[in-house]
Design a protein around this nucleic acid. Structure first.
Lengths: 121, 121
DNA sequence: AGAATCAATAACCATATGGTTATATATTGC
DNA sequence: GCAATATATAACCATATGGTTATTGATTCT
């Protein structure tokens, strides 16, 4: 049983979102954005990488639609977009539940078997 | 404000889990596993790629801890492991909530401002 | 006006990725 | 016993990734 595949655009977006989340620096940046909008240089502070590397990470997050930016003077103000992360959460939520149900069914079945065996012994 | 970073092992695992989820073929395989344990050749059926490509995808899922396998004759029986996906869900859940609270705070603030402006007009 | 700061891009590098074909091994079915 | 099936790995290929230094342009600060 496979739930209807999402539209191609949604699939492509999920590719980008999960890919963006696969790097600890990018996850760390999103974690920082939980505290609110901030600048790129502030987001970069915890990391010992070059500024062009930071720029690349920002690009990946942006391509995934996870952040958007405005410019104030020379500073880019970065904020998180929740829609793509909700989409990822939705995907995981649906399947985590189905996977868990599968395990619960197995557990239930094993429980019954154990009770029967115990009884027979 | 940044929530305490998880242990390095947890971080590395999240890297692998999100990376594994960034490919539509691998997500599709996990979706199929929601229906229960199955063979690799069955998981491969919907895809028009070579068998070694399938093997590589299985390897990525396995390295992320998302699946485990047993062997029955020549067939590998694949099942999903829920722990890593729960870990990813946990990470997304924590931050999705924080990001949303951030937007709710902004919305609330803008609402109050709009009411004041409307009143003054 | 010029230094300092913020950030992007180009070019380069090493490694990883996702596909292929060829080949090998294990197991089942006839 | 041999063909068929299931699956892994090697080698190859094109592309992507994540880092670097150098350079550039925009903006702010002194």
């Amino acid at each position: 049983m496979v739930i209807d595949s999402p539209a191609k655009a949604d699939r492509d977006r999920l590719n980008l979102v999960f890919a963006a989340l696969s790097d600890p620096i990018r996850r760390g940046m999103l974690e920082q954005l939980a505290a609110g909008e901030t600048s790129i240089s502030r987001l970069a502070e915890p990391y010992d990488v070059s500024q062009p590397a930071i720029s690349k990470h920002m690009r990946v997050l942006e391509r995934a639609g996870l952040i958007s930016r405005t410019k104030q003077g020379r500073e880019h103000r970065i904020r998180v977009n929740t829609a793509p992360i909700e989409q990822a959460r939705g995907w995981i939520g649906v399947y985590a539940r189905l996977w868990k149900e599968q395990f619960d069914a197995v557990d239930e079945y094993l429980k019954i078997r154990r009770k029967r065996k115990g009884h027979n012994t």
